[in-house]
Design a protein around this nucleic acid. Structure first.
Length: 420
DNA sequence: TCTGGGGTCCTAGGACCC
DNA sequence: TCTGGGGTCCTAGGACCC
């Protein structure tokens, strides 16, 4: 049986999220900024048409934005995460074989579909729109890589927002039009390399021999090539694997020089990362911390350090203590730091821990029960009100977010108000 | 003045062992 | 003076994705 994948992708996702809660934004240019109001990370079609680039620094396009009355939003990831979950649960009503690929994309398996796939995905698209207000595009093809391509075609050329790429002749026709750089899995470096060898479109890449690809590129690229030829190599991954690392990092709203403030930031990031760690029922065996000064300025200082956690743990205070020691180790006086982060790695399930001879383990201990109470309270009240004191209360280093919308769907005190 | 964050996978090279 | 070679594991760094 031939395989069939659908890729459903939300159009301009973060910008569309803002629009769901403010219909007056329809037809108007909208952009969403990254944390710290640094770069543009989402643009409505109208904003794209004005020439505002993806990932363009805000300060560079500010004049253009103000001159054209573009609505600007600071990133509101709580809101976007909640809307994403609603979109995904609507999609899941159509098939259990769904892979949530990113916050705004999901692959669906259409294997064994008896009727016209195009009509089917049109129905999905309408249902998502009805249930969530989110506009999506859907591409259908026999491999994930081709479904990605079909999705691009749907976005660019189809008034219906759906496209099915399944006939060989049609596939060949489109592959010639798709630039190598636009293929899923081919980045700038590989595209440049291929260009030097005269390969500029997907059709030419698909025609390369396996040997040549293996010799000059990677096994991953070979899979991409096979997928372009219609041979499915990337299966639908419908069970979400546990994360192998969990990190939290931020650019500061202001430059930070004091050791104490860096320690406090690291503690707060640990608090955030450790909560995710416990959510996937894991413990962490290695903690890393990094700090760096402004990467766009001269005299840059950046350093990182890590330490084993024995026994592996998910207890925030112990992880914070480790992180603070690491910050002290790499901190150098006289620099103005712009960014810091923590990464938890060597993750394993909290259930099969090895028994350490002299140390207490994590699960079932007083420490794990304290964390359960804290997480339970924070989850049920959705407040994050209980946290470890070392994370700081004022957080003077916290990021700038001058244009943030409300958390309409997750906070009672920020419900959407309608005045009649 | 102002330039994001969170992941995965692959590779190269060094350490180490036999 | 002569001074192996192969395998594995680990880490750092890069490429790529959204």
């Amino acid at each position: 049986m031939t395989k069939l994948f659908a890729l459903c992708d939300c159009n301009n996702f973060f910008a569309s999220c803002e629009r769901v809660f403010d219909p007056s934004l329809r037809g108007k240019p909208v952009v969403v900024l990254s944390n710290n109001d640094g770069c543009v990370i989402a643009r409505s079609n109208e904003a794209k048409a004005l020439g505002i680039g993806m990932a363009e620094p805000y300060f560079k396009c500010r004049d253009l934005i103000e001159h054209n009355g573009v609505k600007v939003y600071s990133a509101n990831f709580v809101l976007y995460g909640d809307l994403s979950a609603r979109v995904m649960s609507t999609l899941a009503q159509f098939t259990p074989e769904i892979e949530i690929y990113s916050i705004d994309e999901a692959f669906l398996s259409l294997d064994g579909l008896s009727h016209d796939p195009l009509a089917y995905v049109k129905g999905i698209r309408e249902q998502v729109r009805r249930d969530t207000g989110m506009p999506v595009s859907i591409g259908v093809a026999p491999t994930k890589t081709l479904a990605k391509a079909a999705n691009r075609i749907a976005k660019k050329y189809s008034s219906q927002g759906v496209y099915c790429l399944s006939q060989q002749q049609e596939i060949s026709h489109w592959l010639e039009k798709i630039e190598v750089r636009d293929i899923w899995g081919i980045g700038t470096e590989k595209a440049e390399f291929l260009k030097r060898h005269g390969i500029v479109n997907a059709s030419q890449l698909a025609a390369c021999t396996d040997e040549w690809i293996k010799k000059h590129l990677t096994i991953t690229t070979l899979k991409t090539v096979l997928e372009l030829r219609g041979i499915s190599c990337l299966p639908l991954e419908d069970v979400l694997p546990d994360k192998k690392s969990i990190g939290t990092s931020r650019t500061f709203g202001w430059q930070v020089s004091a050791l104490e403030e860096l320690e406090e930031a690291a503690a707060a990031y640990i608090g955030n990362a450790a909560e995710k760690l416990r959510e996937q029922k894991s413990v962490c065996g290695y903690v890393q911390v990094f700090i760096e000064t402004d990467r766009f300025k001269e005299g840059r200082y950046a350093n990182a350090a890590g330490i084993d956690m024995t026994p592996p743990t998910a207890y925030t205070p112990d992880l914070i203590a480790a992180a603070k020691r690491l910050v002290k180790k790499i901190y150098r006086e006289g620099y103005r730091y712009k960014k810091a982060g923590v990464i938890l790695t060597d993750l394993r399930p909290d259930s099969h821990e090895q028994v350490f001879l002299f140390d207490e383990t994590y699960k079932g201990t007083r420490k794990s029960r304290i964390m359960e109470v804290m997480d339970g309270f924070n989850r049920s009240t959705n407040s994050g009100k209980i946290f470890v004191a070392g994370e700081g209360v004022k957080q003077p280093w916290d990021m700038k977010q001058a244009h943030k919308s409300m958390r309409f769907t997750t906070r009672w005190d920020e419900l959407l108000e309608i005045r009649i």
